[in-house]
C-alpha cells in the first residue's frame, strides 16, 4: 500500500476506534449526558473529520468508487452523517442563519380536548421553543385496554364478627348466607361517583375505566330488615356496627393499556386541511414536522401530549440507511451467491 493510502487507513482505524470508545463512555453516562457529549464542540469536529475521511477515501481508493457494494456502504455512512448533522440543533441554527428558514428541531405540545395549539414547548412546558405555521386541534382522545389473559371475576371477601371468612363472586344477584344474615350483591361500579343533583345525592357509575371500583351489597337480617352498603376497592373495608361484617372488594384490578389514540386535525388559515388519528408507532407528518403520541392526561384523559420533531435531514439519513443495508448485502451476500450460481453453471 502506498504511503498516503496507508496514512488514510490508519486515521480511519483511529476514527472508528475513537467512536467505539466514546460510545462505551456514553453508555456509562446514560442517554442524556451521552447526547450532550456527542453534540459537543469537539465531537462536531470529529463528525466533520469523519465526513472528510470518507471523501478522501473515495478520491484515494478507486475500489471504493468502482465496487458497488463498497460504494454503497461508504456513501450510505456519509449520507447518514450529513443528514444527522443537518437535523441536529446546530444544523437548524446554521440553516436559519444562512437560508433564513426557521424551524424548531424538537419539542412538545400539550393540547386539551377540543382545543387548538400552535406553540412548541420545552419538555416541562415552562418555555416556548417555537411556533408552527399552522395549528393542531385535538378532536378526541381515547385509551384501549388489554383484555386480561385469564379474566378473574370480581370478588367480594367477607369476614364475620366471629372471624369466619367467605368469598363471593361480585356479580349482581349473587347471594350468600352468613349465619342468620343473608348478603346479596346489588350492583357493581367500575367508577363510583356521587353527584348532587337538585339537592339530592345521585350515585353514578362513570366507567368505563374505573378509578374507583365499588360494589353495592344488601344485607338482610332475620327480622326482615335490610340495609345496603358500598364496598370500595381502593378504600379498604372497615366493619359496620349494624352487621359487624368486614367486607373488601377486588375488581379485575388495573387493566394494562394496549394503546392510546389522539384524533388530530391540522388547521391552516382557519380551515381544516387534514385529519388523522395518531397512536404510538403511528405519527402524523405535516409541514416538515412529525407529531408523535408521547403522553396523555392519565387521570382525566382530558389532554394529550405530542412530541414534535423537525424532519430536516431525515430523508437523507433514511437514504443512507438503505444504501448501507443494500451495500452490505451486496458486498457480503449477493456477490457470493451470484458467483456460486455462475460457477455451478460453468461446471
Amino acid at each position: 500500500m502506498e504511503k498516503l493510502s496507508r496514512s488514510i487507513m490508519w486515521i480511519v482505524l483511529l476514527a472508528i476506534g475513537l467512536l467505539a470508545v466514546l460510545s462505551m463512555a456514553g453508555a456509562f453516562y446514560g442517554a442524556e449526558k451521552a447526547k450532550l457529549l456527542f453534540n459537543s464542540i469537539p465531537l462536531v469536529f470529529y463528525w466533520y473529520l469523519l465526513s472528510v475521511l470518507f471523501l478522501a477515501g473515495f478520491i484515494e481508493f478507486t475500489r471504493l468508487r468502482r465496487k458497488p457494494g463498497l460504494f454503497m456502504i461508504h456513501t450510505g455512512c456519509l449520507l447518514i452523517l450529513c443528514g444527522s448533522m443537518w437535523g441536529s440543533e446546530a444544523g437548524h441554527r446554521i440553516v436559519k442563519r444562512f437560508f433564513g428558514i426557521q424551524k424548531t428541531p424538537n419539542g412538545y405540545m400539550l393540547i386539551s380536548k377540543g382545543d387548538s395549539e400552535k406553540y412548541i414547548m420545552a419538555e416541562d412546558f415552562g418555555r416556548r421553543l417555537g411556533e408552527l405555521p399552522f395549528s393542531i386541534k385535538l378532536k378526541d382522545f381515547r385509551i384501549e385496554y388489554y383484555q386480561a389473559y385469564e379474566k378473574t371475576p370480581p370478588q367480594l371477601d367477607i369476614k364475620t364478627q366471629e372471624g369466619q371468612q367467605f368469598q363471593l363472586i361480585a356479580k349482581p344477584g349473587e347471594e350468600i348466607t352468613l349465619g342468620r344474615d343473608k348478603l346479596r350483591v346489588v350492583r357493581t361500579f367500575t367508577n363510583f361517583r356521587i353527584r348532587i343533583e337538585d339537592n339530592k345525592k345521585v350515585i353514578t357509575d362513570e366507567g368505563p375505566q374505573g378509578e374507583n371500583p365499588a360494589v353495592e351489597v344488601s344485607i338482610e337480617t332475620p327480622d326482615g330488615n335490610s340495609h345496603s352498603r358500598f364496598v370500595f376497592e381502593h378504600f379498604a373495608g372497615f366493619s359496620h356496627k349494624e352487621d359487624g361484617l368486614q367486607l373488601s372488594y377486588t375488581s379485575q384490578g388495573p387493566q394494562m393499556i394496549r394503546d392510546y389514540f389522539s384524533d388530530l386535525a391540522i388547521i391552516e388559515n382557519g380551515k381544516e386541511v387534514l385529519s388523522k388519528t395518531i397512536e404510538v408507532n403511528h405519527p402524523l407528518h405535516y409541514g416538515g414536522y412529525h407529531f408523535y403520541q408521547h403522553s396523555y392526561d392519565s387521570e382525566m384523559q382530558k389532554y394529550t401530549i405530542l412530541s414534535v420533531t423537525s424532519d430536516s435531514g431525515l430523508y437523507t439519513v433514511y437514504a443512507g440507511y438503505w444504501m448501507l443495508v443494500v451495500g452490505t448485502l451486496w458486498q457480503f451476500w449477493f456477490r457470493h451467491i451470484a458467483k456460486y450460481i455462475k460457477d455451478k453453471k460453468n461446471k
Binding site: 453508555a27 447526547k35 444527522s84 404510538v280 403511528h282 412530541s307 439519513v317
Partner: peptide, 23 residues
C-alpha cells in the same frame, strides 16, 4: 423514529449495539 420520534436516542443499549457494529 416511529415510536419515540427520534432515530437515535443515545441510550446505552443503542450505544452498545453501535460499539458491537463498529468492532
Amino acid at each position: 423514529k416511529l415510536a419515540w420520534g427520534d432515530y437515535w436516542g443515545w441510550d446505552p443499549k443503542e450505544l452498545w449495539s453501535l460499539v458491537s457494529w463498529l468492532v
